[in-house]
Amino acid sequence: MEPRNVVEVGTRVRVADIAPPGHVRTPHYLRGRVGVVERVLGPFPNPEELAYGRRTTPLPLYRVRFPMGELWADAEHPGDTLEAEIYAHWLTIEEDPDAA
């Protein structure tokens, strides 16, 4: 998603399934997973640039909620949830499967 476009709470988003070398703040276990934006945290500097001493353009940061069943095939309770902060450039909007 374009970093400057702020999506609304409740939007379904997918975390990019990429594994670049270097410093990132997106845990591996969330990559490729689908969650829902729980809260918009506002613009924060991009840690992937800060880590190398570069000046950065602030990015929207979201708190995204994932059902445990989306993350782990053997989840203890699939309906339990996990929330994490994800920067906008890691997210794409995911079509709602119930739509259309």
């Binding site: 270097g22 410093h23 703040r25 840690p47 992937e48 800060l50 880590a51 190398y52 001493g53």
Partner: peptide, 12 residues
Amino acid sequence: LMTVDGLRRVLE
């Protein structure tokens, strides 16, 4: 002189 991300990057 450094950022928390710089700290983490080297740790990683």
